[in-house]
Lab assay of single mutants.
Amino acid sequence: EVRVRALYDYEGQEHDELSFKAGDELTKMEDEDEQGWCKGRLDNGQVGLYPANYVEAIQ
């Protein structure tokens, strides 16, 4: 698992997508798939998908 930080706001479009604001931190659980989606977990425990290019790894 990798900690990542959102670069942009994202509003989930489907029930299985996460929503977050730029600057939020979350945990990447799985690497992106061929469509460019990652599985992650918000700090509130919600698990879902998000676009991989909306986040950067925290060093």
Rank of each mutant, 00 (worst) to 15 (best):
E1V: 15
E1D: 02
E1S: 00
E1G: 09
V2E: 13
V2H: 06
V2C: 07
V2L: 08
V2G: 12
V2W: 06
V2A: 05
V2K: 14
R3W: 05
R3H: 03
R3A: 03
R3G: 03
R3C: 00
R3T: 06
R3P: 02
V4T: 03
V4D: 05
V4N: 03
V4A: 03
V4H: 05
V4E: 08
V4W: 03
R5H: 07
R5T: 12
R5S: 04
R5W: 03
R5G: 01
R5P: 00
A6I: 00
A6P: 01
A6V: 02
A6F: 00
A6C: 06
A6Q: 00
A6D: 02
L7T: 12
L7K: 13
L7C: 08
L7S: 06
L7Y: 03
L7R: 08
L7G: 03
L7P: 02
L7D: 04
Y8T: 12
Y8W: 09
Y8I: 11
Y8K: 07
Y8V: 06
Y8N: 10
Y8R: 04
Y8Q: 14
D9N: 15
D9C: 15
Y10C: 06
Y10W: 06
Y10N: 10
Y10H: 07
Y10G: 01
Y10S: 03
E11S: 12
E11K: 12
E11V: 10
E11M: 04
E11Q: 11
G12N: 10
G12L: 03
G12A: 13
G12E: 08
G12K: 09
G12F: 02
G12R: 12
Q13P: 04
Q13C: 14
Q13I: 03
Q13R: 08
E14S: 14
E14P: 10
E14W: 03
E14Y: 14
E14N: 11
E14V: 07
E14C: 07
E14T: 10
H15G: 14
H15Y: 14
H15W: 08
D16T: 13
D16K: 09
D16A: 09
D16Q: 11
D16N: 11
D16P: 09
D16G: 10
E17N: 04
E17V: 15
E17A: 10
E17M: 13
E17H: 05
E17Y: 13
E17S: 14
L18N: 02
L18K: 01
L18S: 01
L18I: 15
L18P: 00
L18H: 01
L18T: 01
S19F: 03
S19D: 05
S19C: 10
S19A: 13
S19T: 14
S19W: 07
S19I: 05
S19V: 05
S19Y: 08
S19H: 03
S19R: 07
F20G: 01
F20C: 01
F20L: 09
F20I: 04
F20E: 02
F20Y: 02
K21M: 06
K21Q: 10
K21I: 09
K21F: 02
K21E: 13
A22E: 10
A22S: 13
A22H: 07
A22C: 08
A22L: 10
A22W: 04
A22Y: 06
A22F: 09
G23M: 04
G23D: 09
G23S: 06
G23K: 11
G23P: 02
G23H: 06
G23N: 02
D24I: 04
D24T: 12
D24R: 03
E25N: 10
E25H: 12
E25L: 09
E25Y: 15
E25Q: 08
E25D: 04
L26I: 14
L26T: 01
L26C: 02
L26G: 02
L26M: 10
L26Y: 03
L26N: 01
L26P: 01
T27I: 13
T27R: 05
T27S: 09
T27D: 04
T27W: 09
T27C: 14
T27Q: 10
T27N: 03
T27K: 04
K28I: 08
K28H: 11
K28S: 08
K28V: 13
M29H: 06
M29T: 11
M29K: 03
M29Q: 06
M29R: 03
M29I: 15
M29A: 08
M29L: 14
E30Q: 12
E30H: 06
E30C: 10
E30I: 09
E30G: 12
E30A: 14
E30D: 09
D31W: 10
D31Q: 12
D31Y: 07
D31M: 10
D31N: 11
D31K: 08
D31I: 06
D31T: 09
E32T: 14
E32C: 11
E32M: 13
E32H: 13
E32D: 11
E32K: 09
D33C: 11
D33M: 10
D33Q: 15
D33V: 12
D33G: 09
D33R: 10
D33P: 09
D33N: 12
D33H: 07
D33S: 13
E34P: 02
E34H: 15
E34T: 06
E34F: 07
E34N: 15
E34A: 12
E34Y: 15
E34L: 11
E34I: 06
E34G: 11
E34Q: 08
Q35I: 13
Q35F: 07
Q35L: 12
Q35D: 12
G36K: 14
G36E: 15
G36L: 09
G36R: 05
G36N: 06
G36A: 04
G36F: 06
W37A: 06
W37K: 06
W37F: 13
W37C: 03
W37V: 09
W37P: 02
C38N: 04
C38I: 05
C38K: 02
C38S: 14
K39T: 09
K39A: 12
K39W: 09
K39E: 05
K39I: 09
K39P: 03
K39C: 09
G40D: 01
G40H: 00
G40T: 00
G40S: 00
R41L: 05
R41H: 07
R41Q: 02
R41Y: 06
L42Y: 00
L42T: 08
L42E: 02
L42C: 09
L42W: 00
D43N: 14
D43V: 10
D43R: 05
D43F: 10
D43Q: 11
D43W: 13
D43L: 07
N44V: 04
N44D: 08
N44Y: 03
N44R: 09
N44S: 13
G45R: 03
G45A: 05
G45I: 00
G45D: 07
G45L: 03
G45E: 04
Q46F: 09
Q46C: 10
Q46P: 08
Q46I: 07
Q46L: 12
Q46A: 14
Q46V: 11
V47P: 03
V47E: 15
V47C: 08
V47G: 02
V47T: 09
G48E: 00
G48R: 00
G48I: 02
G48Q: 00
G48A: 02
G48H: 00
L49K: 07
L49R: 14
L49H: 09
L49D: 13
L49V: 10
L49N: 12
Y50T: 02
Y50D: 01
Y50F: 12
Y50K: 01
Y50H: 00
Y50G: 00
P51F: 04
P51M: 10
P51Y: 05
P51W: 03
P51H: 09
A52D: 07
A52H: 12
A52E: 04
A52Q: 06
A52C: 10
N53L: 10
N53C: 15
N53A: 05
N53T: 11
Y54R: 13
Y54F: 04
Y54T: 11
Y54C: 09
Y54P: 01
V55W: 01
V55E: 02
V55R: 00
V55H: 01
V55L: 02
V55P: 01
E56L: 06
E56T: 13
E56C: 12
E56R: 10
E56F: 06
E56I: 05
E56K: 09
A57Y: 15
A57C: 14
A57S: 11
A57G: 14
A57H: 10
A57N: 13
A57D: 15
A57F: 09
I58T: 04
I58N: 06
Q59C: 15
Q59A: 04
Q59F: 00
